[in-house]
Amino acid sequence: MARPGGHPLVAGTGDVMAVLTSTIAWFLDPAHWTGVDGVPSRTGEHVILSVLAVVIASAIALPAGLVVGHADRGERIATAVAGIGRAVPSYALLILFVPFFGLGFSSALPALVLLAIPPILVNTVTGIRDVDADTVEAGRGMGMTGREVLMDVEVPAALPVIIVGLRTSAVQVVATTTLAALVAGGGLGRYIVDGFARQQDDRIVAGAFLVAVLAIVTERFFTWIQRQLEGRPGTLRLDVPIAPSPFGGRVAD
């Protein structure tokens, strides 16, 4: 495996066993579990930043999606948001914001919020729109107001799809929060970025491991909620749309 010349950044020897042992040793070192740079603190930063981003994005995208989906005029908006969302990489957004909002948290949060909005918005619009037209009409026929139809009929029926949108957002946000370390933010990405800088393989791999676990836990958690709502086991993940049109949902992370 040729290493490109001029990049002697990493001390890696290519010895997988050595890296593995040193990584385990890294985890066993009590020093890595205390202080600002300890695992609990970094995980806390990561989770808080991610949750904050998803909550703010939901506060914007859920009501907007409900209104647009209920009005049944959302096809173009949803398509446009999905298309732009796919085309704008989170990494690019993160770096773009630094000149405007400064380093760290102040750039990372708006970037993450913007990133989290499209999947939630698109899935909410799609979910509401795809509710069986007969069911909606039955609701209307029984004398429900538009608001009652939305809250009592459309939202419960669309909930699994909306949860899938939330899951997509959350998993992407957890992944992208890692990149926040590149713009001097906190979180688990610090281990990876610092590991690269200090040429410490054990730190890099430990960070990668923690990030991967957090992403998978997030994914499993939302899948679990979704299954509870649907009341049946599923085998395929549906958060990546099979077809991007008319409602593409997937956003690059």
């Binding site: 890692t178 960070g207 491991f209 990030v211």
Partner: peptide
Amino acid sequence: PSLALLAFLVP
């Protein structure tokens, strides 16, 4: 996350 994947691979 892709960054984690890269990090696993680099060593």
